[in-house]
């Protein structure tokens, strides 16, 4: 059955989603799009290639149609919310999502802000309205961690969680260890390659990883975890000497997010870790290890970011919704 989506945000992720919907035969049509200054609505389905071409010149559509209007007026089954993350307020994404849920629309998002702050509220409202909120793309990029938690490992008790949740940090540490680069040199290299933002604070201070840890903890344990309860240490004070001292002992240093619910531990910090540990790998990959009562230990590794990789997670969520609930 065809599913109708409205896409908010036409940056790296939004464009990736549109491209894949246009190129692959997924039975998804796009009935609304919006960026920060314009929007388009067409109940019979937009011409995606035309939208992407228009977006190259700046605006995707009509400046008289705002994102707000797309959310409140367009005819769609699923709102794909891929606007920028505001970790402090979760806005405006949070309001868009609530508005769509009130209208009985499902939500698929890659936006960590509103999910780390308001997951319970959004889920409760969605339950009430009989719709789903899915956010696979918020953690671990293409890694199907949420599907694994909710479906594959359903019924397991989760005892602990370890993750490498920030590809930028993993890249920097890999380069410091392999080439003896200083932290500043490795960061500059990551920037040049587009792995680090112009302002890398969120990544290197461990905040991005901590936000993802909060999302995982709330998903698994529903324990009201929040960013201010995570014990956070970043990688920005690490020296190449420290990495060398670790390597001399057949170990290395990685930024690890950890959760031990029984002791109330939520922590992101650089850790000494054996080189043959499953969480040690090179480059920008992400990984999550789960300790469970039935399945034992499971580690998922994959691409943690990227336009098409993140689109993979978004599309997985859209198709989950269209195959599990009836869209109008």
């Amino acid at each position: 059955m065809t599913v109708k989506v409205a896409v908010l945000g036409l940056g790296s992720v939004g464009k990736g989603v549109l491209e894949m919907i246009a190129r692959k035969d997924l039975d998804i049509i796009v009935t609304g799009v919006a960026d920060s200054k314009s929007g388009l609505i067409d109940p019979s389905g937009l011409d995606i290639d035309a939208v992407l071409t228009a977006k190259k010149t700046g605006r995707c559509g009509d400046t008289s149609i705002s994102a707000n209007e797309v959310v409140s007026r367009a005819d769609y089954d699923v709102l794909v919310e891929v606007t920028p993350t505001d970790a402090g307020s979760g806005e405006p994404a949070h309001s868009y999502m609530k508005m769509a849920i009130e209208r009985g629309k499902h939500i698929v998002t890659s936006n960590k802000g509103p999910i780390s702050l308001h997951l319970k509220e959004l889920k409760d409202l969605a339950n009430e309205k009989g719709v789903l909120v899915r956010y696979e793309a918020t953690v671990g990029g293409a890694i199907p961690i949420m599907h694994t938690l909710g479906n594959g490992l359903a019924g397991n008790k989760f005892v602990a969680l370890y993750g490498v949740l920030n590809g930028t940090c993993n890249y920097i540490l890999t380069r410091m260890a392999a080439e003896g680069l200083t932290y500043d040199q490795a960061l500059a290299e990551a920037r040049e390659l587009g792995y680090a933002e112009a302002d890398p604070t969120y990544d290197v201070k461990g905040i991005d990883a901590a936000i993802k840890l909060v999302i995982l903890a709330n998903t698994i344990w529903n324990n009201g975890a929040s960013l201010d309860r995570v014990d956070i240490t970043g990688i920005d004070r690490l020296t190449n000497d420290a990495l060398r001292l670790a390597e001399e002992k057949d170990c290395t240093i990685r930024l690890i997010a950890e959760a031990f619910p029984e002791r109330g531990v939520l922590r992101v910090s650089p850790r000494i870790i054996r080189k043959d540990h499953p969480l040690v790998f090179e480059g920008t990959l992400n990984a999550i290890t789960l300790e469970t009562d039935m399945a034992g230990e499971i580690t998922l590794i994959g691409k943690g970011a990227g336009s098409i990789e993140t689109a993979s997670a978004i599309i997985g969520d859209i198709l989950f919704i269209s195959s599990h609930v009836r869209c109008n």
Binding site: L238, A246, I256, E258, F260, P270, I272, I273, R274, H277
Partner: peptide, 10 residues
Amino acid sequence: IIEPLEGELV
């Protein structure tokens, strides 16, 4: 201070 991963003795 950088400590080993919990539960791992190195």
